Simulated scan of single mutants.
Amino acid sequence: MVHTRYELRLRAPIARTLLDVIRTRFDHVTAPGADGTVLIVEDIDQASLRALLTLLWDTGHEVLSFEEMNHGRRV
């Protein structure tokens, strides 16, 4: 199994309550930046990724960039 990681950069910080919801719905989600504008999601399937993007858009978050990384390399 290939270890896949997605990095999503948001225009504005993500609310703590929304981050809690995301962490409840999806495993292996981190927000490494202090400002909460980056989400890193690991080992997620395409349907779950789409659900995450829809949730972000539905809550008014603008996704500036979306990158897939395999073994630390950008794809």
Rank of each mutant, 00 (worst) to 15 (best):
A34G: 05
E67V: 11
G33P: 00
I22W: 05
L49N: 03
L53A: 05
V2A: 12
L18H: 04
V29P: 00
R16T: 07
L56A: 03
I22Y: 08
V2F: 10
L55H: 05
R73C: 15
R50D: 07
R9W: 12
D45T: 04
G33V: 04
L8I: 12
D43C: 02
H3T: 10
V21Y: 12
T17W: 10
D58W: 02
H28G: 05
L19A: 07
D58R: 14
H61S: 01
R16F: 08
I40N: 01
H71S: 15
T24W: 15
H71T: 15
R9I: 11
L39N: 00
T37M: 01
I14P: 01
G36N: 04
P32S: 14
L18G: 02
T4M: 11
L18M: 09
E42T: 02
D58C: 03
T17K: 13
A51Y: 08
V41N: 00
D43M: 03
V21L: 14
L64Q: 12
V63D: 01
E62D: 10
L39M: 00
R16C: 07
T30Y: 10
H28F: 12
S48A: 15
T30L: 14
T4G: 07
Q46F: 13
R5N: 07
H61D: 01
L10Y: 03
L49F: 09
T24G: 12
S65H: 07
R9L: 11
H71R: 15
A12R: 12
F26P: 04
M1Y: 11
V38N: 07
S48R: 13
H61T: 01
M69P: 04
L53W: 01
H28W: 12
L52K: 03
V63W: 03
S65T: 13
Y6C: 08
V75H: 14
I14C: 05
H61P: 00
D20C: 08
T37L: 01
L64C: 09
E67L: 11
L56P: 00
L18C: 05
L55P: 02
H3E: 09
D20K: 13
P13R: 10
I44G: 02
E62S: 04
T30N: 11
F66V: 08
L19M: 10
G72C: 14
E7R: 10
G60Q: 06
L64I: 09
I40H: 01
T4E: 13
D20R: 12
G60N: 06
N70M: 15
A51W: 05
G36Q: 02
W57Q: 14
E67G: 10
F66G: 07
I22M: 08
P32A: 14
E67N: 14
D45L: 04
L39T: 00
H3K: 15
G36W: 03
L55C: 04
T17P: 04
L8H: 03
W57I: 12
L55I: 07
V38P: 00
D20E: 12
G72D: 14
T59L: 02
E42I: 00
A12E: 06
R5W: 07
G60P: 01
D20N: 11
I44Y: 06
A51I: 07
T24V: 13
T17Q: 13
R23W: 06
W57D: 09
S48H: 10
E68W: 14
R25E: 14
L8E: 02
T59F: 05
R11E: 07
E62K: 06
G33L: 10
V38L: 15
R9Y: 10
I44Q: 03
A51M: 13
L52G: 01
L19S: 05
L39R: 00
